Simulated scan of single mutants.
Amino acid sequence: MAAALAATTSAHAQQQQPQTPPANLPTQAVPQAAATDPGLWRRPALTGDWNGARSRLADNGVTFTINEVVDAAHNFNGGTDSETRAAGQLFLGATIDTAKAWGHPGGKLQVTVINRHGDSLANDAALNLLQPVQTIYGRGEIWRLSQFWYEQTFNGGATALKLGRVTHGEDFGATPCGNMMNLILCGPASSQIVSGYLYNLPVSSWGARLRQRITPNLHLNLGVIESNPVNLDEDRGFYLGTSGATGVIYAGELQWTPKRRCTRLAGHLQGRRLVRHQQLQPHRQ
């Protein structure tokens, strides 16, 4: 039995309303700093406006995200030891609005690198769990290129096509990971069960996603994502090749985000279908 004490520290360099249904990745933000610094506890961004540089960059379509999260947990009973462990994740992202930056409407470029560090309570205390206590532990203590994609919207924003290095969980089976620490409550369950070929943050793969808005509250996502176990290797954090690919994942998901009449709170209902097309290759030693 493990009781987890979560200490989550986030430094957000930006924040804006998402144009897509809720996702589990903090990929965008644009806080407008005040003309005068209101102080550490009142400023919209922890690091301030960088002497006006952040606001000038945002006006020209370039925004940044800096986010550090620490999951600390203690094992009171069970396993082999009564231990305390902390795991962390440093998230560095840059978003370019092509309309502001280059005068090309409807485009967005996202680049994200992530470093994971720290120790796993589940491993060190031999808890023998199906899913780790700390959701941000795993995939190696290295830097990884977790997002490198371009998205173009059409039809007044009703249609959007994304191409590049993506993660499965950012478009399919998205969950609000910022509020949970146990891995089973963060990220698509399908990726947790078949993690050998469906990869979540921070591991990225080549892929494409088409999103179509059917009604204001109903979206259809269709995607194709490469399945390549080479991307899991701890010396391939910035690997952009396709050698070692074992197939592709075809994904389809219908997303409904209704609002309850009594509370006006938004809900999120997803129904998805995943099909794997596997290439028969010799086993990789």
Rank of each mutant, 00 (worst) to 15 (best):
Pro176Cys: 01
Thr84Tyr: 15
Ser82Gln: 12
Asn51Ile: 01
Phe154Thr: 02
Ala11Asn: 10
Ile214Thr: 09
Arg264Gln: 15
Val194His: 15
Gln270Asn: 09
Pro22Tyr: 02
Ile225Ala: 11
Gly271Asn: 08
Leu129Ser: 06
Phe91Met: 05
Gly156Met: 02
Ala266Gln: 15
Leu218Ser: 11
Ala126Ser: 15
Leu163Ala: 13
Asn231Lys: 11
Gly118Glu: 05
His283Met: 10
Leu40Pro: 13
Gly140Ser: 08
Asn24Tyr: 01
Gln255Glu: 08
Gly48Arg: 07
Pro44Cys: 06
Glu253Cys: 05
Asn217Ala: 14
His104Ala: 14
Ile249Lys: 05
Arg272Asn: 04
Pro188Tyr: 07
Phe238Gly: 12
Arg139Thr: 00
Leu274Met: 10
Met180Leu: 02
Thr263His: 15
Gln110Leu: 15
Leu222Glu: 03
Asp124Leu: 13
Asn75Phe: 05
Ala3Pro: 15
Asp71Gln: 08
Gln14Ile: 00
Glu141Trp: 05
Gln89His: 07
Gln32Asn: 09
Thr159Met: 07
Gly244Phe: 02
Asn123Tyr: 04
Pro188Lys: 05
Arg209Val: 11
Gly52Lys: 03
Gln152Trp: 04
Asp71His: 14
Phe238Ile: 03
His74Arg: 13
Asn123Lys: 14
Asn128Val: 00
Ala3Asp: 08
Ala87Phe: 04
His12Thr: 13
His268Ala: 11
Met1Lys: 07
Gly118Met: 09
Leu121Arg: 08
Val248Tyr: 01
Leu240Lys: 09
Thr63Ala: 15
Pro22Trp: 01
Ala3Val: 12
Gly48Glu: 03
Asp233Ser: 12
Thr153Arg: 15
Asn221Ser: 10
Gly252Met: 13
Val133Met: 10
Asn60Thr: 00
Glu226Val: 00
Val248Ile: 07
Pro216Tyr: 04
Leu280Phe: 06
Arg42Pro: 06
Leu127Met: 05
Arg284Phe: 05
Leu220Arg: 06
Gly103Cys: 09
Ala72Asp: 07
Val30Arg: 14
Ala7Asp: 10
Val133Tyr: 02
Thr47Arg: 14
Tyr199Leu: 07
His12Trp: 02
Trp102Val: 03
Gln134His: 11
Ile136Met: 09
Trp41Tyr: 11
Gly118Ala: 12
Glu170His: 04
Gly106Met: 03
His268Asn: 13
His104Ile: 08
His74Lys: 11
Tyr199Ile: 00
